[in-house]
Nucleic acid binder design. Structure first.
Length: 553
DNA sequence: CACGGGTGCGCG
DNA sequence: AAAGCGCGCACCCGTG
């Protein structure tokens, strides 16, 4: 059962579709009546709600305590189908760009605001019933409709999860955060640097004999470091670390603390934490590969340093779960590399790779695999590649093929069919120019370099994108399992509060925490089966029940 | 004074 | 200790 929602003036129009996607019934109601209607329909059965944009509909429902099981986010699905190789000849993909291709308005964080994205009069009208039909036509005509259907369902479930994460918020102890900042940075001084930063500044000015040295200005800092006799090309910490000078230690310490202050200091705390919750805005589909991005608050870059401020409510616990070596396992599964799947049989896949004899140490295995998936060409990681290729020919061959396709300017696709963008027109022109008769060596080399660069992107795309699909399936499965573990509103049951590519945090009543950990495991196994069938790859997940996020792993 | 590119660093 | 991929954000700094 599909129920399509459309905003019509102050009212909501609900189109009820039958099994053949024909409109069976249309009804209108005031917006205020929608939560009650949705709750009532959810109670009877779980229809699939079809709407233009989850961000425009779901926060208001959640604010009324209404949770939905399934939806179709037409905006996100449209973006996938428009680019997917499998639907390249569909009406969706071949049409001129239309209202469904418009850049979505930026969501500034006012979580809970009702219909915050409604901008009457902006853009051409969208007809969700028609768009949904076009999308289904595109999927039905594709070579593997079940894969694309799964992708669209997973993407849409992700949109629900993202809204629920913002709604629930990450439990955040401002007092713990404040204490941690004061401990690291010293007391705040009105209008000046915190005490500890100030004393580090004095120390490095003294050591470099540069009384006006300004570490906040890369240009000035570089000039003054050189004047002090240091042969540095930049002010990057990694480069400074290699220098031996008494001023380096305070400078590195200053940079570290300055980063903490500017990125996650008191200003961040005042801006992003309200009523004991950090409510970041997640952006499903925000990354080309299908990973999520975030908008405001830097949720996906939350430093380990401040995670101690993440504490469960009294009587509750955090269940922190991390998919171990997700990307190499995904590569093993999608390439059908039996030897690599076997290496992943144990707790730690890198140890398993060492056991094959292909590499000598866990570190070599780790960096070798990273190099294989990112396209590393130098250093120790590249040195172990021949051995990895011999031991895991299918896995390494798989990413090599993806790289070669990218170098030719072709698209590649993930397991479920998300397709990489093509290089720019400029890129193709450069390649054509370099293959011409009179192309000079400089031009040829630049074109080769650009080709290799795009090849590294497509090489990584297939793995990163498929890992993102696994994570979506994992969360989609998990959110339903968590819902069934309790009763009442979303935030009164075990619920997701954080997501970080291959890691989730669940906030759960203490007595349910261990059961939640088991559901997290079961959901991971289910995600593997959904994506790869009975492929012999185990997706290991580590779980920890903790009272501080900092205590996980 | 606003804006956009570059730098640097946090995360996976 | 490895150097490849994908991001967001704060800040500086040159330009208009």
């Amino acid at each position: 059962m599909h129920l399509v929602l459309a905003a019509v003036g102050d009212e909501v129009e609900v189109s009820v579709l039958d099994a053949h996607r024909a409109v069976q019934d249309v009804r209108r109601m005031p917006r205020a009546a929608l939560p009650g209607y949705v709750a009532e329909r959810e109670q009877r059965a779980q229809p699939r709600w079809v709407w233009d944009d989850t961000r425009a509909w779901y926060p208001a429902l959640l604010a009324e305590g209404v949770r939905v099981e399934r939806c179709v986010d037409l905006r996100l699905c449209h973006a996938i189908l428009r680019r997917a190789a499998a639907t390249a000849s569909s009406a969706i993909a071949t049409a001129e760009a239309g209202p469904w291709d418009e850049e979505p308005p930026r969501v500034t964080a006012h979580p809970g605001a009702l219909f915050e994205l409604e901008t009457p009069g902006a853009g051409a009208p969208r007809d969700p019933v028609r768009e949904f039909a076009l999308q289904r036509d595109a999927v039905d005509a594709s070579p593997d409709p079940s894969a694309l259907s799964l992708l669209l369902a997973a993407e849409s479930a992700g949109a629900l999860v993202a809204a629920e994460l913002t709604h629930a918020g990450l439990p955040w102890r401002a007092d713990v955060h404040d204490a941690l900042l004061t401990e690291a940075l010293g007391r705040r001084t009105p209008g000046g640097r915190p005490e500890r930063l100030e004393s580090l500044l004095v120390a490095m000015r003294d050591a470099f004999d540069a009384p006006h040295l300004n570490p906040d200005s890369p240009v000035e800092l570089l000039r003054d470091l050189r004047a002090a006799g240091l042969a540095v090309e930049s002010t990057r910490s990694s480069e400074l670390k290699r220098q031996r000078h008494p001023g380096i230690a305070p400078l590195l310490e200053y940079k570290k603390l300055s980063r903490l202050l500017t990125a996650n200091g008191w200003t961040w705390l005042d801006t992003w934490v309200r009523d004991g919750r950090f409510r970041p805005v997640y952006v499903p589909g925000g990354v080309v590969t299908g990973r999520w991005a975030s908008d405001g608050g830097g949720a996906l870059q939350l430093p380990h340093e401040v995670r101690d401020a993440v504490r469960p409510d009294p009587g509750w616990r955090l269940v922190v779960a991390d998919a171990a070596q997700l990307e190499p396992r995904v590569l093993a599964a999608m390439s059908g590399d039996r030897a690599m799947a076997d290496a992943g049989r144990g707790e730690d896949m890198y140890d398993g790779i060492v056991a094959t004899g292909a590499v000598r140490s866990r570190e070599e295995a780790k960096y070798g695999m990273l190099g294989a998936m990112y396209g590393g060409t130098t250093g120790p990681s590249a040195r172990v590649m021949p051995n990895l290729a011999r031991t895991f020919p299918r896995a390494i061959g798989f990413v090599e093929d993806a790289a070669r396709a990218g170098e030719r300017g072709e698209s590649v696709t993930t397991r479920l069919g998300r397709t990489s963008p093509r290089p720019s027109e400029r890129w193709f022109e450069q390649q054509r120019a370099a293959s011409g008769e009179e192309a000079g060596p400089a031009l040829t080399e630049r074109a080769r370099s650009e080709a290799r660069s795009w090849g590294r992107f497509t090489r990584n795309f297939v793995v990163q994108g498929t890992a993102a699909e696994w994570a979506l399936c994992w969360m989609a499965e998990l959110r339903n399992r968590l819902w069934r573990m309790g009763s009442g509103r979303l935030e009164e049951r075990p619920h997701l509060v954080f997501f970080l590519h291959d890691e989730v945090v669940v906030h759960a009543p203490q007595e349910l925490a261990e059961a939640v950990a088991a559901e997290v495991q079961a959901a991971a196994a289910q995600a593997g089966r959904v994506l790869f069938g009975e492929a012999p790859v185990e997706f290991r997940v580590t779980t920890a029940v903790v009272e501080s996020y900092a205590d996980a792993k």
